[in-house]
Amino acid sequence: MRLLNRRPGQQFSLILAVLPFLLVGLVYLQASNARLEVNPNDKLLPSPSQMAEAMHRMAFEEDRRTGQYLLWADTAASLQRLAMGVGVAALIGLGVGITIGLVPIASATLGPFVAVVSMVPPLAVLPILFIAFGLGELAKVVLIALGITPFLIRDIAFRVGELPRELLVKAQTLGASTLQIALRVVLPQMLPRLLSGLRLALGPAWLFLIAAEAIASTEGLGYRIFLVRRFLAMDVILPYVAWITLLAFLMDTALAALSRRLYPWAYVR
């Protein structure tokens, strides 16, 4: 049988899926062991027990200077920034995207502008944001929003343009105004698209969050990683990276599940 026709069964799929993780883990353990054998004080590739110890300290022991449980404080701060940035971007993306997609005059006015703005590298304007909004929360939230809004606008506008013209004509023959069509025909059909757009935008959103935290912050997951880097504290950095990855993965899964739950009509085939 040709390779492209061979499909793994359910169990075999699971084994195949676990395999790469296992492999990377094994390679790491091997390398870590080898280094620690030569020098027990090596900090570059800490052993799992060292990492567990460090994480226990971060998660369950009060920080002596601030009196906080650092992992949770960092997580709360980062997630709050992320939620605000992504939330603002989603609202603007939906509103402007539908307007551009539905109204030719709006698309003629804003289309080229958005296309150009979306080419501005957000990290290049980060200094401007810090100067304009100070080093507080606002600049970080704005960076995230600025970073993913153009993508969301263009995604939604494009999807609106993909709606069958028949649907828009039909709505007009039912007496709908432009606003009614936007609210009752286009908006509901764009919500599942927005959620899938958000799933794609989460990666960049995390990138901008960590970049902003690395440069100017006093707490946050990105801030912590860049802070302990000075002490070469890989036993904190590695688990933090894994934790961030887990959070991002859970958000992605949650968005997918939410979309299926809220918009079952978009998944009936």
Partner: peptide
């Protein structure tokens, strides 16, 4: 093709014209 709205149930589809007609700006 594409004569009905996929995001509305059968009944909601049938009601839509009336909602547009007398449902105000929000339909």
């Amino acid at each position: 093709r594409y004569s009905v709205f996929p995001h509305l149930t059968v009944l909601q589809n049938a009601m839509l014209g009336l909602e547009f007609q007398s449902g105000g700006p929000l339909g």
